[in-house]
C-alpha cells in the first residue's frame, strides 16, 4: 500500500546524502519549507547544490543552511537580501559558487527538467553577460539563447494541504516554485500544514498531483521566517 506520511522531519529527510542537488521551494519566505531546511542543518550533510530563487534572509532557513557551510553552490536569480549578509560574505571570500539565472529562465529550466525537455530556446538574456558562451539560434527571424534544463535529487516543498497519496494544495503566493520543483526532483519531500485522507481534497483543486510527491510530514504551525528574523533568531 502507498504510504507517504513520515512520522518526523528526521525520517522525512533521512535519505538526503552529502553532495546532493536540492531544489528548495519558496520565494523569499513565502512557501519556504523552513522546518525541512532546519532539519537539514541538524543532519549536517554538506557539499550541497541548492536551487532556489534567493539565497536566504536573516540567519534562519536557507541563509542558516548556507551559513552552516553546507552549501557548495547555489543556483538562483536574486541572491541579494536587505537583511542578510551570510551569502554575500561567503561569496566575496570565494567560499560559495553562484550560478545566476534570470528568474523566468530558472522557472522554465525547472519545468523542463520535470517535463522531459532537455533544453529550450528563450529570448531572455540575449545580448547580455548572462548569455555569454551560450548557443544563440535564429528562429523565425528572432535570436534566442539555448538553456538546459535543471533536475535535482531532492525537492523540499511547503504545501498547505496534502492527502495520503501526495496530492497538494498551496497557500496563496506560497505556491511559486513548489509545483515545478516537485516535478523536477527524483525525490520530493513535502511539509504540509494539514494532512488528510485520500479523497478529502477535491480533485478539481489539486495543484500538484500525488505522483510527483514521495514523502510528507505534517507541520501544523510552521515557523514564519520574518517573525524569527524580527525576534533576532539565528538557527540553530
Amino acid at each position: 500500500m502507498i504510504d507517504k506520511i513520515c512520522p518526523s522531519v528526521e525520517v522525512a529527510i533521512a535519505g538526503i546524502k552529502e553532495g546532493a542537488t536540492i531544489m528548495v521551494g519558496g520565494f523569499g519566505e513565502a512557501g519556504s519549507p523552513i522546518e525541512l531546511i532546519h532539519a537539514l542543518i541538524d543532519k549536517g550533510v554538506g557539499d550541497l547544490t541548492i536551487i532556489n530563487n534567493n539565497a536566504g534572509n536573516g540567519a534562519v532557513g536557507l541563509a542558516a543552511l548556507i551559513g552552516a557551510g553546507q552549501v557548495r553552490k547555489i543556483v538562483c536569480s536574486y541572491p541579494r537580501s536587505s537583511n542578510s549578509k551570510i551569502f554575500s560574505e561567503l561569496y566575496r571570500r570565494g567560499e560559495i559558487e553562484l550560478e545566476l539565472v534570470p528568474q523566468g529562465t530558472l522557472a522554465e529550466r525547472i519545468r523542463a527538467g520535470g517535463a522531459g525537455i532537455p533544453a529550450f530556446y528563450t529570448p531572455t538574456s540575449l545580448g547580455t553577460p548572462l548569455a555569454e558562451g551560450k548557443e544563440v539560434r535564429e528562429i523565425k527571424g528572432r535570436n534566442y539563447v539555448l538553456e538546459y534544463n535543471l533536475t535535482a535529487d531532492i525537492a523540499l516543498i511547503r504545501a498547505e494541504k496534502a492527502d495520503t497519496l501526495g496530492n497538494l494544495t498551496y497557500n496563496k503566493a506560497a505556491r511559486n516554485f513548489g509545483p515545478i520543483m516537485a516535478m523536477a526532483a527524483t525525490t520530493t519531500i513535502v511539509q504540509a500544514r494539514e494532512v488528510v485522507q485520500a479523497g478529502e481534497i477535491n480533485p478539481e483543486v489539486v495543484v500538484t498531483p500525488g505522483l510527483f510527491v514521495d514523502q510528507i510530514i505534517e507541520i501544523t504551525n510552521p515557523a514564519i521566517e520574518s517573525q524569527l528574523i524580527n525576534e533576532g533568531v539565528s538557527y540553530p
Binding site: 523569499g28 519566505e29 513565502a30 522557472a107 496563496k172 503566493a173 505556491r175 511559486n176 515545478i180 520574518s226
Partner: peptide, 26 residues
C-alpha cells in the same frame, strides 16, 4: 507572509485575483 509581491512586501487581493506557479507566471 504567503501573500507578497516581487518586492517581498505584503499585498491584498482584489475580486477576480488568481494564483499560479512560477513557470506559468513567466
Amino acid at each position: 507572509p504567503d501573500l507578497i509581491n516581487a518586492g517581498k512586501k505584503p499585498v491584498s487581493l482584489l475580486p477576480g485575483a488568481s494564483f499560479f506557479h512560477h513557470a506559468d507566471s513567466f
